[in-house]
Design a protein around this nucleic acid. Structure first.
Lengths: 124, 124
DNA sequence: CGGGATCCGTTGGGATACTG
DNA sequence: CAGTATCCCAACGGATCCCG
């Protein structure tokens, strides 16, 4: 590997990768919910509200695979499964919160820009 | 990329929205490239390398709609179009960089977790 | 040169039904 | 309760052709 400038394209592939990973429809919501503490499957499902069971399962599996959450099964009847953030997951939450605050603070500017753009298009 | 509006409660709406917006396949790469300064269409296309013309156009339109980039047309022959980050776009780059640094620093831990997870699955 | 239009394979994600 | 399996539609994204 030859050394490259630190701020050039190669590195931002990892960023793009990570963003696409957590930028899907549900991952962030799940991680954010688990930020409050360990939760059970249906607890998450009910708290998020409109997520399908399939997507919750899929999302949790992906997060588990990438080392962001742990899955703990209690072999009881009825079964009980707890999901919890790993250290990696909690660390991820930090930069994500930075983006979160930006998003909350600037949501208005974005939707204003959107409305302006759509308005101009409609006027044509 | 595409406006989705799942009816969920809380501030994470905006965050999820923003993440899905810039978490698509190309937006971040484009914004990051434009972070170096204004660029022309084919200049961007060539720098990014493997993006199709359609996706570059689509991505730029979306970024323009959301107020992250400006599009300037010079009515010459042959035509020339410059794309440039707006203030909003440059501000977005700040929290994104936080995430970027995290991603670069922890890419190894993620892929290690991935390999471990897949290894366990394969061993079963 | 920049980009619209179209075709088409691939992926995301919801609904439903079934299982241990 | 916590999934798995299946079906199916809609959105994403690449390739190609065409136009000012």
């Amino acid at each position: 590997m030859k050394p490259r400038h630190p701020h050039v394209t190669g590195d931002c592939l990892a960023v793009s990768d990570i963003l696409q990973r957590i930028g899907d429809k549900w991952s962030l919501l799940v991680v954010q919910n688990l930020g409050e503490g360990p939760k059970r499957f249906n607890e998450l499902k009910h708290h998020i509200g409109n997520i399908s069971q399939k997507m919750l399962t899929t999302t949790l599996r992906s997060l588990e695979r990438d080392g962001f959450v742990t899955r703990t099964v209690f072999p009881t009847i009825p079964p009980r499964v707890d999901y919890e953030l790993t250290d990696l997951g909690r660390e991820l939450l930090i930069p994500v919160k930075g983006l979160a605050e930006w998003a909350i603070a600037n949501a208005g500017r974005v939707s204003a820009a959107r409305a302006r753009f759509d308005g101009v298009k409609a006027a044509a």
